[in-house]
Amino acid sequence: MDAIVAVDARWGIGRDGGLLFRISADLRRFKALTMGHTVVMGRRTLQSLPGGRGLPGRRNLVLSRQGDLIPKGAEVFHEVQPMLDAAGEDAFVIGGAQVYRLLLPACRRLYVTQIDADGGADVFFPEPAPELWRITEQSPWQEEQGLRYRYLTYERKDGMDGI
């Protein structure tokens, strides 16, 4: 399982239930990496998607404590282990903050878009601990709409499996 996330300079990922920034190149990258794969998200992330439904072209799994949630285009799980069993190894965790914190130990790779700005976030991604993660790829800084950003790939260090 891998995670994919866009973070601001303080590892913020969202504010008021939405994204901090919309960078079209990053959204295209997200789509290219996740298309045809399973994506795992929490209820709030699902509700923030267009129409509150799963992403097209992907198997959508939602981890939620809410018992009456019946989303269109997604499967709901109330416990972590059955969701992990259903997700498989090629799944991507796509948010939100609680789901990232819960599933980060099960991830082997992190695809991070690092945005060089403070988005005033109210939810945050747990910054990868250097003793557990190493950067294996780093793009040059790019710019879109006055925002500087770059792509980082982190891989879990050998012998540091989680869940």
Rank of each mutant, 00 (worst) to 15 (best):
L46Q: 08
Q47G: 02
Q47F: 04
S48Q: 04
G52D: 05
R53Q: 14
R53V: 13
G54I: 00
L55N: 08
P56Y: 04
P56E: 12
P56K: 10
P56R: 11
G57P: 08
G57S: 11
G57I: 12
R58K: 08
R58H: 02
N60V: 09
N60R: 12
N60L: 11
N60H: 12
N60W: 02
N60S: 10
L61F: 01
L61G: 02
L63R: 07
L63C: 12
L63N: 11
S64V: 08
R65M: 08
R65N: 11
G67E: 14
D68S: 13
D68G: 13
I70P: 02
I70L: 13
I70E: 14
I70Q: 13
I70R: 15
P71N: 13
G73P: 09
G73E: 07
G73T: 11
A74H: 10
E75T: 15
V76D: 06
V76F: 13
H78M: 10
E79T: 12
E79W: 08
E79A: 15
E79L: 14
Q81E: 15
Q81C: 00
Q81G: 05
Q81M: 14
P82R: 11
P82Y: 12
P82S: 03
M83W: 10
M83D: 01
M83F: 10
D85G: 05
D85C: 07
A86S: 12
A86M: 04
A86F: 03
A86P: 05
A87Y: 03
G88A: 10
G88T: 09
G88W: 06
G88M: 06
G88D: 00
G88Y: 07
D90G: 15
A91S: 10
V93M: 02
I94S: 03
I94C: 01
G95R: 01
G96R: 05
G96V: 09
A97I: 02
Q98I: 07
Q98E: 15
V99C: 04
Y100L: 03
Y100N: 00
R101S: 14
L104G: 00
L104T: 00
L104I: 13
P105S: 08
A106P: 00
R109K: 15
R109N: 05
R109P: 00
Y111G: 00
Y111S: 07
Y111D: 01
T113H: 02
T113D: 04
T113A: 04
T113Y: 07
T113G: 01
I115C: 06
I115R: 01
D116C: 01
D116H: 14
D116A: 15
D116W: 10
D116P: 06
A117D: 09
D118N: 15
G119H: 01
G119D: 05
G120I: 08
A121R: 07
A121P: 03
A121G: 15
D122R: 04
D122T: 13
V123Q: 13
F124E: 02
F124M: 06
F125V: 06
F125K: 05
